[in-house]
Design a protein around this nucleic acid. Structure first.
Length: 141
DNA sequence: GCCAACGTTGGC
DNA sequence: GCCAACGTTGGC
C-alpha cells in the first residue's frame, strides 16, 4: 500500500465537504498538472492519503482512502486529464501544520516541505507514521 | 499584497 | 530544441 497527499484550497473544496460525503467517494477532479496526474495513475484502491488545506490554514487536516483508481476527469473533455476518487476516513485529532512539518527533522525530505506547489504528492511510510504521531492519530497507519 | 518557484506557451 | 515571457500557486 502506498501513501499520498492531496492538497486543496478550502475555498474550492474543503475537508468539511469531503467529510460530509463520507463514506461515499468523491472525484478528485480538476488536476491539470502532469506530475500530479502521473501520481494518481499509480494509485491503487485502498491506498491512504493525507488531506491538506493550503493557503490560510496550511495544515494536514484529515485522512482519506483511494476508492476508485484513475479514470477520465469528468470536468473536462480533454483526454489527457484523469483523476481518482477518494473518501474521507477520519479527521486529524490535531491538525499537523506546515510549520510543524518543517520543524520536524523526520519530515525534512517531505515533498510538502520542499515543493509546496505540487497538488498530489507521494508520502513515504516513515513520513506517514511521523505525521500521524504529530496529529495524535494512531489508527491512520 | 508581494514575490519566489514552478509550469506552460510560443517565437525563433 | 531552446529559452524568454507569461500565468498560476502558495507561503510569508
Amino acid at each position: 500500500m502506498q501513501y499520498w497527499l492531496f492538497k486543496s484550497e478550502p475555498s474550492t473544496w474543503s475537508w468539511q465537504q469531503q467529510l460530509a460525503k463520507a463514506p461515499e467517494c468523491e472525484e478528485w477532479d480538476g488536476v491539470r498538472n502532469y506530475q500530479a496526474r502521473n501520481y494518481m495513475r499509480q494509485m491503487k484502491t485502498g491506498d491512504r492519503g493525507f488531506f491538506y488545506h493550503s493557503q490560510k490554514e496550511k495544515a494536514i487536516v484529515g485522512i482519506v482512502e483511494v476508492c476508485v483508481e484513475a479514470h477520465p476527469d469528468s470536468t473536462t473533455d480533454d483526454p489527457r486529464w484523469e483523476c481518482v476518487d477518494i473518501r474521507a476516513i477520519q479527521s486529524m485529532p490535531d491538525p499537523v501544520t506546515l510549520a510543524m512539518c518543517k520543524q520536524d527533522p523526520r519530515l525534512k525530505d517531505m515533498v510538502l516541505v520542499n515543493n509546496s506547489r505540487l497538488s498530489v504528492q507521494p508520502v513515504r511510510p516513515d513520513e506517514w507514521k511521523a505525521v500521524c504521531e504529530l496529529g495524535g492519530c494512531n489508527t491512520g497507519y
